[in-house]
Design a protein around this nucleic acid. Sequence first.
DNA 1: CCTCGGCCTGCAATCGATTGTCGGATCACC
DNA 2: GGTGATCCGACAATCGATTGCAGGCCGAGG
Lengths: 351, 351
Amino acid sequence: MSRTSTLSDVARRAGVHQATASRALNPASRHLVNHATAERVLAAARELGYVPNAIARGLRTSRTGTVGVIIPDLMNPLFPPIVRGIEDVLAQEGYTALLANTDNDEQRERALFESLVTRRVDGFIVATARRTHPLLDEAARRGLKVVLVYRGTDRTDFCAVTADDWLGITLATEHLIELGHRRIGHLAGPQDVYTGSIRARSFNEALRSHDQDVPAEHIVVCDAYSEAAGVSGTRRLLDQAPDLTAIVAANDLLALGACDVLRERGLRCPDQVSVTGFNDMPFADKFDPPLTTVRVPHYDLGAEAGRLLLDQLTRSGPHPTKRLSLTPTLIKRGSTAPPSIREAPSTHGPA
Amino acid sequence: MSRTSTLSDVARRAGVHQATASRALNPASRHLVNHATAERVLAAARELGYVPNAIARGLRTSRTGTVGVIIPDLMNPLFPPIVRGIEDVLAQEGYTALLANTDNDEQRERALFESLVTRRVDGFIVATARRTHPLLDEAARRGLKVVLVYRGTDRTDFCAVTADDWLGITLATEHLIELGHRRIGHLAGPQDVYTGSIRARSFNEALRSHDQDVPAEHIVVCDAYSEAAGVSGTRRLLDQAPDLTAIVAANDLLALGACDVLRERGLRCPDQVSVTGFNDMPFADKFDPPLTTVRVPHYDLGAEAGRLLLDQLTRSGPHPTKRLSLTPTLIKRGSTAPPSIREAPSTHGPA
DNA sequence: CCTCGGCCTGCAATCGATTGTCGGATCACC
DNA sequence: GGTGATCCGACAATCGATTGCAGGCCGAGG
């Protein structure tokens, strides 16, 4: 009802100067003011329902206590846990995250970035990095504090927290090899994104190191990490390589798309074709079939990214560029099985 | 690198006073300044990479262009679409959403609310409302602009956008009745939340209007909307009413928990027990079995809430309190079927 | 009684943009 | 050439909190 009260309202009520009120209210400077006076100020503040104005404070101190978090899409279930990790860590130091959904749209990303810069966030956590990314170049030029999470970039001067994608795909691929699969395809993610490119390379390398060829038609690159992209990718993949017995998808949503296509073509998973995902998104264990996938500690990725950024924000001076990699684990569920009988006349078997 | 440039830097470079620069930069007041001068200012701003300081502007104008969005948990897949709807609408008018995850914790909610008030958000969209809610009382006392989304409250002086929960549960319950079920249980949500209470009352009413009794042991109240709460609730429910042939869950996560327990007890869904959910959360169609549920237009809920708030923010003067209800639809999938043979002795065995 | 030092507290500048008011320049017209 | 209207741009106050500096008060010590 009554207009919100300001610092000088509090000061007047407590019978002191606003400078004194300010010092009394701020725990860090409270020792500068007489105990009894401080109590009086606190009481006055309480009575008036005083809420400090972060805007005014931010203008004076040029620190807003906010961090911009840029993610591709909140509706992709892999990101909420990351956000959660970030928020939990930042909150401990009194920082607030401003979320920006880019929807994988560069225009939109640009606009949101501008808006965050305008709002003078103290730093950024970016989950939308591409291998080469003009936005990151500009952030570097402006001297902004940026930590990358989940997706890396080609530049080496940003702190980053990622999963060990290489290892993750190796685990998935070797799992299929051990089951006896010999014709394995890969549904790759967008190659301008670090995760897409490294997972594809890892897939190749895993097969090669087991003396298996990787014909070009066994790999299809999807243009997004989405179920729809997985569907069209899998259609292409099965068209050009109909005899695959297993598919390593670069991502759970792609894997889901793959399962859709298998069903559509009357192929049973895992009996006829095995599928692996990546991320272990929430509810992946509830799917039909339950998805064998690579679990990534998303929450921890976010938390570590938050910590790295807090380091930059609170400690002064130059910082070494840290790049942290967290270890994923293979979660075996129902979408993988040995290749069906037609596959194994078992004459020249595995070594 | 170089410190960010300010309005007076731009003014100096363009050879004008900062007041002029300000007017030239702001589209709304640009007509007040000579066209050629305005061009010169814009050029100077571009050259310097000038980014206006929203903090300073906010201090002067006492409008921050931000809206606080309070949700219980981003990791519950029902909320991201709501958030998305809110953000899309707000963005059109240049507003930014500040997200706050309360994690259903009142302490945490309190702290986040304070933080948002401190940051002088222009308004709030609240998805954590309980039927009686001290936070809302205080918001009203402070004269804050608040729109409720998804969950209503007992107060009638807040704008709100909700789904028609009553209708939703009626649809689900009648669907089961039509399938021939006569012993239907309800996994109710927390009763201090509007959705929990109205869905339970609707369930009762739907059965009664079909001349069916609702024995007390057919209803169990869960203490949260989570899979875990659904598991323990279902255990209790089946313990006290083992002959149920169908369960109406107040929420998809509760339904998921119910399915877990059915599996754990060797009961097949839907053959022996049918289950319905509520919300049609993402991937509900991928579950095993695919979940019959009530689809709520979450995105639209968010979008409408955003619009309602924008109305309050942009138009001045008093506003009528609008309460908007969106219509849900029943999505029939694989988790519901007619009651099994033991239930209907007249007919023949399974086909 | 004077001086010195240590606590507190008040004064005032400051952060950067917005905006009401006013003065000066330009031009037209008489 | 003088007067008035019109338009532009400058001046300066303002938003609310923080903070360096200075000064007042008090007690202790000489």
